[in-house]
Design a protein around this nucleic acid. Structure first.
Lengths: 136, 136
DNA sequence: TCTTATGTTAGAATCATTCTAATATGGTAA
DNA sequence: TTACCATATTAGAATGATTCTAACATAAGA
């Protein structure tokens, strides 16, 4: 908690209870929830919380590099605490996202899962947009 | 065209003009359009086309393995003709998706692009769901 | 403690995608 | 080749995730 406050201030992010709650949730549990799920999980302990605040908070935390956006499930965006980069496995039935740590240990961590597809995406700004000084 | 009809029939997919048009578009151009974009591109040549049909068609073609769904941009789903698997680069400014062929040639094909993030996702059915016989 | 730039909130608005129910048609069988 | 019917197409309504709006509240520097 104290640590989270310090981390946020260091990143020039105003440390509000709502933001602290979101960070702590993602930090404590190894979950990859959607905004809606985060809202449902925090609402009991934070009754005034609004879904809009969850969305605002997630945006701010992604910008600050505290959390990471996962674009796996086309139906919703998921989020995780920004631990060292790793791979993910997504179940198209239950929707859960599993960490697949260490890019060499893959086989171990995927054992039992029925892998149907694997994809890698690079994201950023393309040469044309860089040239056009759209940079931001 | 003829080839597309044969391919679809072989895959037990009824070869309608709308489906053929979608396949031919993705096959001809190396583009990664959204459903909306496909609709806009085909509408002039196929005025009766409905957006719902584009969505239905894309679903059928993905099931048949003719095309591939790209979940890169959280705001919309993109599609590509199912060529041999390769990586992708997505520009967060113009939204275009670039092929990054051959997983070893990465540096070459990404030269000039400002890569800010790379992610790999495995997708399928998790052990728990496999056990629960939810399999489908 | 005061001040104010910034954050929170509920609800409305947006927009991609899915659903619905009426109409049309590809492809098989006669 | 024609007739039939399971399956497709279509427009528009419905849904659901996300963003916007405008009023109110608060973190944190002075």
């Amino acid at each position: 908690m104290v640590m989270t406050v310090e981390t946020l201030r260091r990143k020039k992010v105003k440390a509000t209870p709502q933001r602290i709650a979101v960070v702590e949730l993602l930090k404590a549990e190894r979950i990859h929830p959607s905004a809606e799920e985060i809202y449902r999980l925090l609402k009991p302990a934070c009754p005034s919380l609004s879904l809009a605040t969850v969305y605002n908070t997630l945006e701010v935390l992604v910008e600050a590099g505290e959390i990471r956006r996962l674009t796996i499930d086309a139906k919703r965006t998921n989020y995780e605490y920004a631990r060292p980069p790793h791979d993910h496995f997504w179940c198209r039935l239950c929707g859960r996202i599993f960490d697949v740590p260490g890019r060499m240990k893959r086989p171990d961590f995927l054992t039992g899962h029925k892998v149907e597809q694997s994809s890698r995406y690079y994201k950023g700004i393309c040469r044309d947009c860089v040239k056009q000084n759209k940079n931001k």
